[in-house]
Design a protein around this nucleic acid. Sequence first.
DNA 1: GTTATCGGATAGTGCAACTGTCTATACCCG
DNA 2: CGGGTATAGACAGTTGCACTATCCGATAAC
Lengths: 206, 206
Amino acid sequence: MKMALLSSSSGIAVATIKYYLREGLLPAGERHGPNQALYGPEHLRRLRVIRGLLDVGGLSIAAAHRVIDAIDSDLGLAHTFEIAQRTVSAEIEPDSVSPASVTRVDELLSGWHVSPDNPGRLAAARVLTTFDDLGQPDLSGWVPGYAAAALAVAEADLDEIDARDDRESKTEMVVIGTVLGDALFAALRRAAQEHVSVQRYSPPSP
Amino acid sequence: MKMALLSSSSGIAVATIKYYLREGLLPAGERHGPNQALYGPEHLRRLRVIRGLLDVGGLSIAAAHRVIDAIDSDLGLAHTFEIAQRTVSAEIEPDSVSPASVTRVDELLSGWHVSPDNPGRLAAARVLTTFDDLGQPDLSGWVPGYAAAALAVAEADLDEIDARDDRESKTEMVVIGTVLGDALFAALRRAAQEHVSVQRYSPPSP
DNA sequence: GTTATCGGATAGTGCAACTGTCTATACCCG
DNA sequence: CGGGTATAGACAGTTGCACTATCCGATAAC
């Protein structure tokens, strides 16, 4: 298919597709002359992946580039996982995190096998530091529930990856699932908050 | 305290604080002349809230403004909740969501009391639509786990809000918890993923 | 053969979040 | 009490990102 069709069937402007080509997000089409190239269904699909990562996952172009590279290259699953995790996690300056918060996170995660440079470990500590800075009272009734839920979700994530049969599909689920899973959970949390709130404070007539 | 001290004790540049004042994110100091004003501890605290919302919660200035206004005004808790939820949820164009995905979300949430315009409902459907567009296989083994976890987290959220005694503290937890809770869960998910992954594929010698 | 479209290069746009400069004051230390 | 520093407020400038527009020479479609 040609550029015009690729554009119309993806809903993305020609200029934008050319931009993605320049940035290396989208592989070049099959060349047939100095100003001719053909694109296949894999380009269309790739464009959908890109839009999903950008619009739903909220990634930047650079971040999307990194995770797409991770899908394309055949590193091991563990390595792919790490790239996906690091890409979706914002870089955290160590001095924005109090050592006490890190300790609290480590206690919370005691029993878990988590390496010291897991991006989530510092990110969680950063959140707790922010609560501390705001003088929030004891959150020990709140945070453990999050950890338990995160564990359940991680089990579901790994189950889903296990359920894929070929390596390529596993890799893709690792990356897409890591990125879109955050969005999915956040969305369901909103719904659940309304449900629980109604349940508790204005229960439907029994 | 004066501007210089407010800046140094918050770690935020004077020019940036002035910018927040202009934008109405930070209330003006107590005036003592045409070029003098004094700031109190509440300004310092407010700056910490702002940085938390921006850096940890990833909100824009405009979004931070909305939720801060929600904290300041004394709307009911339910209304505050709604503002917080809508602010952290990106606006979704309805035609980026397939009706089938909405139906699937509604089935997933059957038994929950969720209004049709809950921001999470559409956002969840958007994520499912993206998976559909990528031709992902059946996700019925994956998504329900997310819903269950989201319910558990929402219970923890409401428990924590209930545990606060005064209205002001409840309101603040509604807003800050909604915004930072997403970040906290995402971080703990990263840690849990590593834990479960290690547990399954390279268990420590027993 | 003429009109439309193509790939590629380059420049420009719009927005968000600051950052820097300027001016007329006011404070503060010696 | 005087000179250096700080201040509020106005406004322009900067940076980075994600596009978007324009142009060119070549090719395709009718």
